[in-house]
Simulated scan of single mutants.
Amino acid sequence: MARPITMPPGLAAANLPLGRDPASVRRRLIAMEQLLEGLFVIPGINRRVGLDFVLGLIPVAGDALAAALGGWLVWEARNLGMSKASLLRMTGRVGFDALLGLVPFVGDAADLYYRSNTRNLKRILRHLDKHHPATVTVEG
């Protein structure tokens, strides 16, 4: 007989932003952007970097995976009903970042300064603030 799967304390299903409601999507997108762009600080230059930068150090496959993760943000934006023009612009940012990533050293430098995921998140948050104002959170 199989044992039931239980979640660790403090990680209840209610705490995970898995819902389709705009508030859950907002929390999930912010967490993904933080993972991709702001996981840790590089000492010396004091710049926040994340998984996008780390994956960019792996030739081709790392850039492809980083682009796929950035594409997930665009997919979530599509599910929120954002306009095709916005989705096209966001896809262009992810594609531009992926193309730059194919060029050795240039792509790594671009990940430090051209934060396509942060730019896309800002666009999505503006959409959420306009069309789902109840999801706005005040950080204090």
Rank of each mutant, 00 (worst) to 15 (best):
S83C: 08
M32P: 00
L125S: 04
H131Q: 11
Y113F: 15
G81M: 07
R47I: 12
P59Q: 08
A23T: 10
A13F: 15
L11N: 12
V60D: 08
R89A: 07
P133R: 14
Q34N: 13
A12M: 12
A14E: 13
N120E: 06
P22L: 02
V94R: 00
I58T: 07
N79A: 02
P9A: 13
I45L: 12
V49P: 01
G81V: 07
V138C: 04
R3H: 09
A12E: 15
L99V: 12
E139R: 09
M90N: 04
G50H: 04
V25A: 02
G50Q: 07
G38C: 10
T91Y: 03
S86A: 10
A67Q: 03
P43V: 11
Y114T: 04
F105W: 15
G140P: 07
K130M: 13
P104K: 14
T6C: 05
L128Y: 03
E37K: 00
R20D: 10
G56P: 03
Y114P: 01
E76N: 10
Y113T: 06
T118N: 11
M82R: 06
I58F: 09
V94W: 00
L65C: 07
P133F: 11
F96K: 09
V106P: 09
V41T: 12
Q34E: 14
A23Y: 10
Q34P: 02
L99E: 10
A2T: 11
L99H: 08
E139Q: 09
A12C: 06
L18V: 10
A64Q: 04
P22I: 05
A61G: 06
K122A: 14
A98P: 04
L87I: 13
D63C: 13
I124M: 09
A68K: 13
D21P: 02
R78T: 09
T135Q: 12
A68G: 05
I58G: 00
M90F: 07
M32K: 05
R26M: 04
A64C: 10
F40T: 08
K84P: 07
A110R: 09
E76R: 09
I124F: 03
W72H: 14
G19W: 14
G56C: 09
D52H: 11
Y113A: 03
T137Q: 15
L87R: 04
E76L: 03
H132C: 03
R47C: 05
D63W: 12
E33F: 03
A61I: 15
D111M: 06
G50L: 09
